[in-house]
């Protein structure tokens, strides 16, 4: 039986966990995310996520007005 729409894939509410080992950054989760990055790529990805999160929060605030 198919699941209800509410059971289907939703935006992730839990953060991924990044760890450093051997001069590399490992991002495990959420869900199936599994990637290895150089420190530079990890830092740039982190900044990009922070910037996008700020934009998304503004969009939510505008929608809620």
């Amino acid at each position: 039986m198919m699941r209800d729409a509410t059971d289907q894939l939703q935006p992730e509410t839990q953060p991924g966990i990044a760890t450093a080992e051997g001069g590399l950054v490992f991002l495990d989760g959420p869900d199936s995310i599994a990637t290895t990055m150089t420190p530079e790529a990890a830092a740039a990805t982190g900044q990009s996520l922070i910037d996008a999160a700020a934009t998304a929060e503004r969009q939510q605030a505008e929608r809620d007005v």
């Binding site: 490992f26 495990d28 989760g29 869900d31 199936s32 995310i33 599994a34």
Partner: peptide
């Protein structure tokens, strides 16, 4: 496996 599991799970 690739769509739903994390690295250890895969």
């Amino acid at each position: 496996r690739l769509g739903r599991l994390d690295a250890t799970g895969r």
